[in-house]
Design a protein around this nucleic acid. Structure first.
Lengths: 117, 117
DNA sequence: ATTATATATGAACAATTGCTCATATATTTA
DNA sequence: TAAATATATGAGCAATTGTTCATATATAAT
């Protein structure tokens, strides 16, 4: 029943049963980990942080972050696929803005944690 | 002054200046992205989720997640290094628990976001 | 219509990451 | 003291990821 060795009296069956019952489902864990994968990259985090302040086109973001259009565009695709940003095409330009107000909260809590140390 | 091409009237200097002034520092972005890197892995997320319910030893966690002691131990080291969990040695066993109440908030907001879809 | 511009995207490559396996350390038990 | 047990950790490997480069698409301007 148990994985690998470990004696009966070291494995706490009651705690394990309780945790098993209360823990998040595998599907949910998968989706949440995917969400936080977005926030785990500096470039994407900087893009989201910038969009928190103002709607911006790809050109603006490249200029602001001092990175190529291509890499910004690739990361914006990730953000689009995760439905965290929305795109509005105006002429040749595409303007991006945040789609969700959880984004601000997530960044804020991260900053709070880091600052408390 | 601008990165790559892009005409003057497409780059929004005012927006860029404003964003530049208000954006988080590079250091902070780095630290926050590192924090969220922890939550971007399913195994670590499951460990944190389990510890949210109960203090557990390495053996318990391996049993609960059906993974080897080694991989759990490796991930616990990451969590220790990031100061998200604390370890208490009792005999041969080491009991882990959460060090921070931000962890619960971070998981909750992630779940909220995913559920709203 | 042709050229220029803004963005998107596929392929390739280097860097990072999470697991496994082997081994080390620490503590308890015989 | 020797053997067993719980955990930790280094090395190696496969998988994933972020960037660059080349190219494609869409719109605007000439």
């Amino acid at each position: 029943m148990n994985y690998e060795e470990c004696e009966e009296d070291v494995i706490h069956d009651d705690k394990i049963a309780m945790a098993k019952a209360e823990m998040l489902s595998e599907d949910l864990i998968f989706e949440v980990s995917n969400l936080y994968k977005v926030f785990s990259d500096e470039t994407r985090l900087r893009i989201l942080d910038a969009l928190l302040i103002s709607e911006l086109c790809v050109c603006d973001i490249s200029e602001l972050l001092n990175m190529t259009h291509s890499s910004i565009s690739h990361q914006l695709k990730v953000l689009r696929d995760m439905r965290l940003v929305k795109a509005k095409k105006v002429g040749k330009s595409v303007y991006y803005s945040l789609k969700d107000d959880h984004i601000q909260k997530i960044i804020e809590i991260g900053v709070e944690h880091v600052n408390e140390k």
